Simulated assay, not measured.
Amino acid sequence: MRSPLDDTALDTVFREARTHYGFHAQPLDEAILRRLYDLLKWGPTSMNSQPARYVFVVSEEGKSRLLPALSAGNRDKAHQAGAIVIVAVDSRFYEHMPEAVSQFAQRP
C-alpha cells in the first residue's frame, strides 16, 4: 500500500484550493492538455472503466459556438480561458469495456 499524502499535497488539493474567476487568454499547449487527460484517464475505477467523456475546446470558433449555451456570468470567463473542457457522462460506457481492458493491458 502506498503512503498517505503529506500535508503539503492535501493543502494543495483540498484545503487551500479555490475556484479561479479569471483566466489568461494565452492558448494552452496541446501537450499540457494531453498530460492532464493522461492523469485522469487512469483514475482508480472499477476495471479501469471511465464513463466520462471530455471535449477540449481551444479554438476561438469553438468557444464562440459554445458561449451562447453558458450562463451570462460565465461567458466572459470562458471566452478568456485558454481551453474549455466539456465533461459528459457516457451512460453506455460499458459497451466500450473490451476496448478499455485492451488499453490497460498495453499500459506501460
Rank of each mutant, 00 (worst) to 15 (best):
T12M: 12
T12G: 09
R15G: 06
A17K: 11
R18W: 06
R18T: 08
R18C: 04
T19C: 08
H24N: 10
A25V: 03
Q26T: 11
L28V: 13
A31I: 12
A31N: 08
I32T: 13
I32F: 07
L33Y: 07
L33E: 06
R35I: 03
R35N: 14
R35T: 14
L36S: 07
L39W: 09
K41M: 14
T45E: 07
S46N: 13
M47S: 14
M47H: 12
N48C: 04
S49W: 02
A52K: 01
R53A: 11
R53C: 09
R53W: 07
Y54D: 04
V55C: 10
V55R: 08
V57A: 07
E61P: 01
E61M: 02
G62K: 07
L66W: 01
L66A: 05
L67R: 03
A69M: 09
L70M: 10
L70G: 08
L70R: 09
A72Y: 05
G73A: 13
G73M: 09
A78M: 09
Q80A: 15
G82M: 12
G82T: 11
A83I: 04
I84D: 04
V85Y: 06
I86G: 03
I86W: 06
V87K: 15
A88C: 12
V89G: 02
V89W: 13
D90P: 04
F93V: 07
Y94H: 08
Y94K: 08
E95M: 06
H96D: 14
H96S: 10
H96A: 13
P98D: 10
P98F: 05
